[in-house]
Structure formats: C-alpha cells, structure tokens
C-alpha cells in the first residue's frame, strides 16, 4: 500500500519559495565574487563584469516576484504563515534550545510543533528581515547617484554583512532540507507539495491533528448532506 501523503504547500507557496530561493542563490554566488579575492581572481575582469550584470538583473525578480506571487496567488496562506511566524510560545523557545542536538544528529526530545516549527519560523523571520535589508541597501547602491554619499558609503557594509550572514543561514537551511536524515522529507513539501503522513505526525504533530480534525468535519458534513 502506498504511503499516505498530506498536502503541505500549494502551488503558489512553492512558486513563491523557489522564486525567492533561486534568485537569492544567484545573487549570493555573483555577489560573493566581490568579497572573496581568490574567487574574483578566478573569474577575471570579464567574468566579474558578467557576474555584476547578473547580480543587477536578479535584483528585479528578487525584490518583486516572490511578493507578487504570494499576494496574488495565495494571500490567505501567506498571511497565516506570517501570523504563525510572529506567534511564539514556550514550546517554541524550548524547541530552539533543544534543536542544536537534533541538527548534529544527537538524541533529543523536541516539543510538539505546528505547521512551522520554531526553527522554520526563525528562518522565515530572518529571511524576511534580511531580504528587506538586502533589497533596500542594494537599490541604494544601484541608484547611488540619487542618494547622499554617506548613505551609499554605509549601504555597502550593511549589504555585505546581510549577504554573509544570510549565506551562513542558507547553508544550514539546505543541509536540513536535503542532507539531514530526520528532516529531509520536508523537501518534498516544497517540490510536490506533499509530505508523508508519518513525517507530518512526527515533526508537526499539532498541525497534523488540526489537519485530521478538519478532514473529519468535512467528511461529517458530506454525510449529513
């Protein structure tokens, strides 16, 4: 019997995630060429000029595309996601405190989580804040002639700091999505939109129960009809 699967992300949530993720990776890989001198030397001036053009072109979809997809495609779930990210309870802090052991594959008991666990909420908040910072400082750099020299001068260290910190967060994010045996089932939620029921139960217990309760209500309503 094929494993039961439950829907986690609709098409627009997934498109929004990947339009952000892909443009972010392009921006990071092209931007870091200006930070690591060895990498810059490898590319040479011609390569760097090309990377700059890619960086500048990616700025448009990075800034606008994800927001447009979420607002037009799936405003209700995007709003729910934001609300959940901003709601923190005791279990969330306990989860964060216990999570490093889980990250390294050590034995640990994690408190039950909703649709988004506390780590995902933290990652979401960092991503939102970081993206606003990157877009704001990036556009200042692109439109530098319209800003005062002091603003442009400080935009650069902020842009670099945001890029390098978010680059570090991205490495952890990719590891959890693809490499970590406990959590890598979650990548299917962002690809096909569905995860195994077992994964949902074990990693997002509160969400799974709400999902089942919702299904039951629907079924009972169908019976009555």
């Amino acid at each position: 019997m094929p494993e039961e699967r439950v829907e986690r992300f609709n098409l627009f949530e997934r498109l929004g995630h990947w339009s952000h993720g892909i443009t972010f990776v392009f921006l990071l890989l092209t931007g870091l060429a200006l930070v690591f001198r060895g990498y810059a030397g490898l590319l040479g001036p011609g390569g760097l000029r090309l990377f700059r053009s890619i960086h500048h072109a990616m700025a448009y979809p990075f800034t606008f595309l994800t927001v447009i997809i979420l607002i037009l495609g799936t405003p209700r779930t995007a709003w729910q996601w934001l609300r959940e990210c901003l709601t923190w309870g005791r279990d969330d802090f306990r989860f964060i405190a216990a999570f490093p052991r889980e990250f390294f594959g050590l034995k640990v008991q994690l408190p039950e989580q909703g649709k988004f666990n506390a780590g995902e909420k933290l990652n979401s908040l960092l991503t939102i804040a970081g993206s606003i910072l990157m877009a704001a400082t990036g556009w200042i750099l692109l439109l530098r002639d319209s800003f005062s020299p002091a603003v442009v001068a400080w935009a650069l260290p902020l842009h670099s700091a945001g890029a390098l910190l978010m680059g570090g967060v991205l490495l952890g994010h990719v590891y959890l999505a693809l490499g970590h045996p406990g959590s890598r089932e979650s990548i299917n939620g962002m690809l096909s939109g569905k995860v195994s029921a077992r994964f949902a139960r074990e990693h997002h217990g509160r969400w799974y129960r709400q999902l089942k309760a919702g299904e039951k209500v629907v079924k009972e309503q169908q019976k009555i009809a």
Partner: peptide, 10 residues
C-alpha cells in the same frame, strides 16, 4: 569587521 566576520560566520 564585516568581511572577516562574515567569512567566519559562513
């Protein structure tokens, strides 16, 4: 600060 610190974080 930002370049060496950021490279350390990564």
């Amino acid at each position: 600060i930002v370049h060496p610190g950021g490279k350390t974080v990564m």
